[in-house]
Design a protein around this nucleic acid. Structure first.
Lengths: 177, 177
DNA sequence: CAATTTAGGTTGCGAATCACTACTTATAGA
DNA sequence: TCTATAAGTAGTGATTCGCAACCTAAATTG
C-alpha cells in the first residue's frame, strides 16, 4: 500500500480524522485541480504538456500538483523509454480506485448542475449500455438513502445477530431534513 | 431543480464542461471546506457556531462558504422559529444527493490514506451490517472497473441492440495502466 | 557539428484567498 | 437594564494562484 506522508492536520480536524478518513482524503484530492488532473489521467493523458493544454492550468501549479499527486501515491512518475525528455505520469492502483468517487461527482453534476445530458455517455463496454447511477448499498445489495444509515461502534458490529435489545453502540444517526 | 448560478469557467475548462459536468460540480464542491461542511451537515449540525467549533474554520471563511453553498442550492438557510437569533442550515435534496460521492471519497481515504479502520462504522440501520464499498455497476448490476468502461455518443446509444458491427460512436476508451 | 525545437520544469510578480483577531448587530434571558 | 449568544463583518498578514519569462536537458534539423 503506497502511502503518502500522513499529512498533519489542524487541531479540530485531527480529532475528526481519528474516526473519519474524509479529512485525510481531502488533503490531497480536495485541492483545486486534483480531480481535473485525475480525470485527464483516466482519459489517457500522461504528459506534462498534455495536461497543460487540456486543462489550461498554470505551469507552476501543474508542476506542484503533479508532484503532490505523486507524493501521495495517486500518480507515478516514470521517464519515457523512447524519448528521454519525456516523463510519464500514470495512475497507480490508489489513483485508479478514485474512479467511483469521480464518477459519482460527475453524475451529481450532470443531474444538478450543468443540465447537459453529458453527450458522450459512459457505458459498459460489454453491452454498450449506460452505467447505473452510483449509489449506496447494503450488504445484500439494497439501495440505501441517508434515512437508512447510522453509525455503530466497531465492537458492536457482530453482536447484533438475533439481538433485539437496543444497542448502546449506536453513535450517531445520519439524518437531516 | 434549484440551480446555482451557472458559474463562468475559464476557457479550456468550458470546453470540457460542454461534455462533462465534473468541472461544474467542482466549482462548488471542489472548494476547500465544502465537503467538510457537507459532512457536518449530514451529521446533524445546523448552525453557524456548531460548524465553527466542529471544523475550526475561520469565521469569515465559514460565512463565505455557507453563502456559496446556499447560493448553489446545496444548503438552504432558514431563520429558527423558536429562537430568532439562530439560522438553520439544512441540506437540500441537491445536497443530500452528494452522499454517495462523500462516502465514496471517505471509503477511498479509509482504504488508502488513514489506515484507520474508521471506528464508528457506517451501517444499514435495518440489519446493522456495514454498507458495501461504493462501486460502478452496469445496468444489470455487474461491478465494473475502468477496464470495462468506454464512452459512446448519445446518438449511438440505442443503435447497439443486436448489432455486432464496430461502432463509429466510440469516442474514447477510458483506460490507463 | 551547430542551431532550433521540445519537454518539463523554476522564478518572480501582482492578485486572490486564507487564517486570525477584533468589532457589530440583533435577539434572548436574568 | 445588563449580559450572553448567534451570526455575521472588517482589518491585517501569510499562502496560494495565475501569468509570463526564463532555464536545462534531450531530441531534431540542416
Amino acid at each position: 500500500m503506497t502511502h503518502g506522508n500522513p499529512t498533519k492536520l489542524r487541531e479540530p480536524l485531527a480529532e475528526i480524522a481519528a474516526c473519519c478518513s474524509l479529512p485525510q482524503a481531502l488533503e490531497t484530492m480536495g485541492e483545486r485541480w486534483s480531480f481535473m488532473i485525475l480525470r485527464a489521467s483516466f482519459n489517457g493523458l500522461h504528459h506534462f504538456e498534455e495536461f497543460l493544454e487540456e486543462l489550461g492550468i498554470a505551469r507552476n501549479i501543474l508542476s506542484n500538483r503533479l508532484t503532490r499527486l505523486v507524493e501521495s501515491g495517486i500518480l507515478k512518475r516514470a521517464p519515457c523509454v523512447d524519448d528521454r525528455r519525456k516523463i510519464e505520469y500514470r495512475l497507480t492502483d490508489k489513483g485508479l480506485d478514485l474512479l467511483p468517487t469521480m464518477i459519482a461527482l460527475r453524475q451529481w453534476g450532470e443531474k444538478w448542475e450543468s443540465g447537459v445530458p453529458s453527450n458522450p455517455v459512459l457505458v459498459d463496454e460489454r453491452d454498450r449500455r449506460p452505467i447505473q447511477a452510483i449509489s449506496i448499498r447494503a450488504h445484500d445489495g439494497r439501495v440505501l438513502t441517508h434515512h437508512d444509515l447510522c453509525w455503530i461502534d466497531i465492537a458492536d458490529l457482530n453482536a447484533g445477530d438475533g439481538d433485539d435489545s437496543d444497542h448502546d453502540g449506536v453513535v450517531k444517526r445520519i439524518a437531516s431534513i
